[in-house]
C-alpha cells in the first residue's frame, strides 16, 4: 500500500471527520474544536507523557552521579559506558522523552492538511473534502465551518498574537527543561542549550506565521498543556518567574543580579537578608535554592550508595578479569 494512501485513510481522513464532529459539538466553532482536540489528544497521550516526565525526574535525580562519572572517567568511551550502565540501573531511558514529541509530529502535519481541507478555504478544498467525509448527516451537513475564532481567522496565516503565544510558551518550556540538567553539562552542551532556547521557539514562531492560524492555536495550546504537566509532575527546575526580569531591569529597580541558568557561574551568592525581605522574586529564588539544596543532599545520599555499588561491580569485574586471565 502506498504511504500516501495509508496516511490519508488512517490518519488524515479520520482526523478530518473528528474535527468536523468536534466543531458540531463545540457549537460550530472550529477554534473551540481545535482546543478540545488538543485536550483530548494530550489526555490520550497522558500515560506516555507521564512516563516521560517520570523519566525526566529520574534523570534529574541521577545528575550528581552523572557528574561524578564525568569527573571520574576521562576516556569518553568508558564514560559513556558507565553512564549507560547508570541509566540502566536507575531505570532511566534517555530516549524516552522523545515519545510524546514524535507522536505529535504526524498529528501536527496531518492537522495542517486537515485545517486546509476542512475549512474549505478554496473551491478545490471543498471538492476534495466531499469524498473525505463519512456518510453521516451530522458530518455531511456541517460544512462550511466557521473560520473565525475570537479575533483569529483560522484559515489565514498566524498573526502576531499567536506567534507571540507560541514563542513564549515554547521558550518557557525549553527554559524549564534545560535549566534542570545544567549542572552536569559541559560547555558545548550548555552552548547548544542556549542556542536551542531561542532557536526552537523562533523556528516554530516563524512556522506559525507561515501556516494557518488553526495550527498555531493547536501548537500553542498543546505547549501550554505540556508546561502545566511538566510543572506539576517534575517541577520547574531552577526556573523562577523572577528570573524573567532581565539584569538590566534588575539593576534599575534595585534587585540582585542573576546569573544565566546554565552558565558556569550558576552558583548564586547567598541572597542578602535585605533583598530577601524586599522582593517576592528574591523569595522565589531562595525557595528554589532551598529546593536545590535538598536535592543536593538527596543526591549526596544517593551518590554514596551508588558509588558503593559501582565499586563492588568494578571489583567483581576485576576479579572476573583476573580469573579469566
Amino acid at each position: 500500500m502506498p504511504i500516501g494512501f495509508i496516511w490519508q485513510t488512517f490518519l488524515e481522513t479520520p482526523l478530518i471527520n473528528v474535527m468536523v464532529l468536534l466543531t458540531v459539538v463545540s457549537f460550530g466553532s472550529f477554534g473551540l474544536a481545535i482546543l478540545l482536540f488538543t485536550v483530548i489528544s494530550r489526555a490520550l497521550m497522558f500515560p506516555l507523557t507521564l512516563r516521560t516526565l517520570h523519566a525526566a525526574r529520574s534523570m534529574q535525580e541521577i545528575q550528581p552521579q552523572i557528574k561524578e562519572l564525568q569527573k571520574k572517567y576521562s576516556d569518553p568511551r568508558r564514560r559513556s559506558e558507565e553512564t549507560m550502565k547508570l541509566y540502566k540501573e536507575s531505570g532511566v531511558n534517555p530516549l524516552g522523552c522523545l515519545g510524546p514529541q514524535l507522536i505529535q509530529f504526524p498529528i501536527f502535519i496531518a492537522l495542517y492538511q486537515v485545517i486546509r481541507t476542512t475549512l474549505a478555504s478554496t473551491p478545490e478544498s471543498v471538492v476534495n473534502l466531499s469524498h473525505r467525509l463519512y456518510d453521516f448527516n451530522i458530518i455531511q451537513d456541517a460544512t462550511p465551518l466557521s473560520t473565525k475564532f475570537l479575533f483569529i481567522d483560522l484559515q489565514q496565516n498566524g498573526g502576531p498574537f499567536l506567534t507571540a503565544v507560541v514563542f513564549a510558551s515554547m521558550w518557557l518550556q525549553q527554559r524549564i527543561s534545560t535549566g534542570r540538567n545544567a549542572a552536569t553539562q559541559n560547555d558545548q552542551q550548555k552552548q547548544m542549550n542556549q542556542m536551542m532556547q531561542w532557536m526552537l521557539p523562533g523556528m516554530f514562531a516563524w512556522f506559525v506565521l507561515a501556516v494557518p492560524s488553526g495550527l498555531g492555536l493547536y501548537w500553542g495550546s498543546s505547549t501550554i498543556i505540556g508546561i502545566l504537566l511538566q510543572w506539576k509532575f517534575v517541577g520547574p527546575g531552577d526556573f523562577t518567574w523572577g528570573s524573567l526580569i532581565p539584569n538590566i531591569v534588575r539593576d534599575q529597580i534595585g534587585l540582585e543580579r542573576i546569573a544565566a541558568p546554565d552558565s558556569k557561574t550558576n552558583k548564586r551568592p547567598p541572597a542578602s537578608p535585605q533583598a530577601t525581605d524586599d522582593t517576592e522574586s528574591s523569595t522565589e529564588t531562595e525557595q528554589t535554592d532551598g529546593d536545590n539544596g535538598s536535592q543536593r543532599k538527596n543526591g549526596r545520599r544517593r551518590r554514596r550508595s551508588r558509588s558503593r555499588s559501582t565499586r563492588t561491580s568494578s571489583r567483581s569485574g576485576r576479579r572476573r578479569g583476573n580469573s579469566g586471565g
Binding site: C97, Q101, L102, I109, M203, A210, Q230
Partner: peptide, 25 residues
Amino acid sequence: MFHVKHRKPLIAVLAATVLLAVGCA
C-alpha cells in the same frame, strides 16, 4: 524536556517536518 545528547536527531526531525509542512503549503 530533552537531554542534550539527543537534540541532534530531534533537530533533524524538526527540520524535516518544517520542510515537509511548508512544502505542503
